[in-house]
């Protein structure tokens, strides 16, 4: 039996593929969130992390392409399954009632599509960096003088616009909801859900989804409300405070140098 045939053609195989790709994407978003949560630490922390990732160069691209492929498979199969499922009942019922399907499970397609749109926007916003002008994507130097992108400020700047922030919160909420069904479903699709622990699994997944949502919402909320602040004198909105250590550690010249270096990198 051809394994590719199983994974992409058979009904259960497709569900297994959905589960596995979904799990990889879940792994990614969790990793992404943990990276982003560094925003609550010293700005250098997240900036260094971003710099580290960027420095991977081709490695980063491999990861990106891999994730993109996984995403495409996940979306493609979802579309295929949806079409097949529609075709399986050419004539519908007049008034079918729902017996126990959860709302999350019934809106997987809707949440999935919105999340997909969000992903596109999010990539344009923070990865390709084209949704805003250059002032939204500042640079800085680390404590050791390495010139880097100021991801810390970029994120905060990104959430200055309440509409964008609300869209982010909404999208992450829908993603969490998508995961609410997706994660439990994943265990079912690969056959790891049993009566013995399906209740526990359900609760764990709920907790994970709520935490995931809160984690993301916290970042946006903190940025919007000023709980985390821009700590880069070059950026508009920077408010120098007396207790601020940054000015003491850096001088304007280094910052200017790093600006050049960063723009060289970019080109």
């Amino acid at each position: 039996m051809n394994i590719l045939h199983v994974l992409f053609k058979s009904s259960i195989g497709k569900k297994i593929t959905m589960a596995v790709t979904g799990f990889i994407l879940f792994g990614f978003v969790i990793g992404h969130l943990s990276g982003n949560l560094q925003i609550f630490a010293h700005p250098d922390k997240i900036n260094a992390y971003a710099h580290f990732l960027e420095a991977l160069g081709p490695g980063l691209w491999l990861i990106r392409l891999f994730l993109l492929a996984i995403l495409i498979i996940h979306v493609w199969l979802a579309a295929q399954l949806t079409l097949e499922n529609k075709a399986a009942r050419p004539q519908g019922y007049q008034n079918q009632i729902t017996l126990r399907a959860t709302l999350a499970s019934r809106y997987m397609r809707v949440t999935g599509v919105i999340v997909l749109v969000f992903i596109v926007y999010h990539l344009l916003h923070f990865t390709v960096r084209v949704t805003h002008g250059p002032e939204a994507y500042p640079n800085t130097v680390l404590i050791d003088g390495t010139p880097v992108r100021d991801v810390h400020s970029m994120i905060i700047l990104g959430f200055q616009n309440p509409l964008i922030s609300i869209f982010y919160i909404l999208a992450v909420g829908l993603l969490s909801w998508h995961l609410r069904h997706g994660l439990v479903s994943m265990f079912q699709s690969i056959g790891w859900q049993t009566r013995t622990w399906s209740k526990a699994l359900n609760k764990i997944v709920l907790a994970v989804c709520v935490l995931y949502f809160l984690g993301n919402a916290l970042i946006v909320g903190a940025a919007m409300s000023g709980q985390v602040r821009i700590q880069n004198p070059q950026v508009a909105g920077y408010v120098c405070r007396t207790d601020c250590e940054i000015c003491g550690l850096r001088n304007a010249a280094t910052i200017a140098e790093s600006d050049e270096a960063a723009s060289d990198n970019q080109s």
């Binding site: 009904s11 399954l81 499922n85 017996l99 126990r100 399907a101 499970s105 069904h181």
Partner: peptide, 11 residues
């Protein structure tokens, strides 16, 4: 046989 796929809703 043309049945649809399971979406784990357990209806």
């Amino acid at each position: 046989a043309g049945f649809g796929n399971c979406t784990n809703q357990y209806e």
